[in-house]
């Protein structure tokens, strides 16, 4: 019962957050001193044409009315129609979200798969060469801009070595996935290894580890069963939050690798001032973050009963 209450409270908060985000996005998209009809009608439209199109797109009504329209439609799960593609925004998002999810999952998988063992290793070899190398590498990884890291990977593994396609190739989805997933994972790998390293160092000094060691358990058993399990709790949280962020679409990575996901739609919508699509992509991206946050909260509550009392 308490869990249900907790869930309901968090859900309520999540909805308020979403409403807030979407309202801010709406205001920003409409506050821009530019006219979407100008982008749509080319260099020399007549004033009548502009007026007509503005009417068709609801742009001639006061902001409050437009906002009312927008929220009303949203309540019916209608995101409107893209100005440019002339398709329902929901159709566009439905078409692209799968590819974005694929990329996000692959990236998080790589972050954990590589980041966690590196962190453990660094912790066990604290203040020695592997630790220094992993920590320095992590610093570089975290500071590498996606744009640069992606181009470098493309140049080495796509162009020079020809291991992977340069950009997205239909029919070779998996091969096309590797480089963008790695590009997105670079920062994450660094972050995860740092976090796991810190947690491991802390956990390894706990009394129960000493007890386990004193009982004569094997080193691997102490590390894997006792230490790592406890060090991984914050990692679970981070996976949830990272997935939430990445599922909204990776703007630069998707653009660089021609990955047909939500991120490209987001870029395109902003460049062309396609307001329904801007709002649609913002809504989806923020919904993912909010949902994953909610899930993490609930999972925490399940794992650690103390959370509910807070």
């Amino acid at each position: 019962m308490k869990l249900l209450q907790f869930f309901a409270r968090r859900l309520g908060r999540a909805l308020i957050t979403l409403w807030f985000v979407i309202t801010v996005a709406f205001l920003l998209a409409y506050a821009l001193p530019a006219d979407p009809t100008k982008v749509l009608l080319g260099p020399h439209p007549s004033p009548q044409q502009i007026a007509k199109l503005r009417h068709q797109l609801c742009l001639d009504r006061p902001l409050t009315v437009q906002y009312g329209c927008f929220v009303g439609r949203l309540a019916k799960l209608d995101l409107g129609k893209s100005f440019n593609a002339k398709e329902p925004v929901s159709t566009i998002i439905a078409r692209r979200v799968g590819k974005t999810a694929m990329l996000a999952l692959a990236a998080v998988f790589l972050m954990v798969l590589i980041g966690v063992p590196l962190g453990v290793w660094a912790a066990l070899r604290r203040n020695r060469l592997p630790d220094a190398a992993i920590t320095t590498g992590g610093l570089i990884g975290m500071s590498t801009p996606t744009f640069f890291g992606g181009l470098l990977l493309l140049y080495i593994f796509g162009f020079q070595l020809e291991w992977f396609p340069i950009g997205y190739q239909k029919g070779r989805e998996l091969a096309s996935l590797v480089l963008p997933a790695f590009t997105m994972a670079i920062t994450g790998i660094a972050a995860y290894s740092r976090m796991v390293r810190g947690e491991m160092i802390e956990v390894m000094q706990e009394d129960y580890i000493r007890t386990a060691q004193a009982k004569g358990l094997s080193r691997s058993s102490v590390i894997l069963k006792h230490a790592l399990r406890n060090a991984l709790t914050p990692v679970v949280t981070m996976i949830g939050l990272d997935l939430g962020v990445l599922l909204g679409g990776a703007i630069i990575t998707e653009y660089l690798f021609q990955w047909p996901g939500l991120g490209r739609e987001a870029v395109k919508s902003i460049i062309t001032l396609d307001r329904p699509l801007i709002l649609g992509t913002v809504l989806v991206a923020s919904a993912f973050i909010v949902i994953m946050n909610l899930l993490v909260d609930v999972m925490y509550a399940l794992l650690d009963p103390r959370v509910r009392l807070e």
Partner: peptide, 12 residues
Amino acid sequence: QLMVERQVGFMK
């Protein structure tokens, strides 16, 4: 091929 970044286009 559409919406290809310029440096990626050159690599292609």
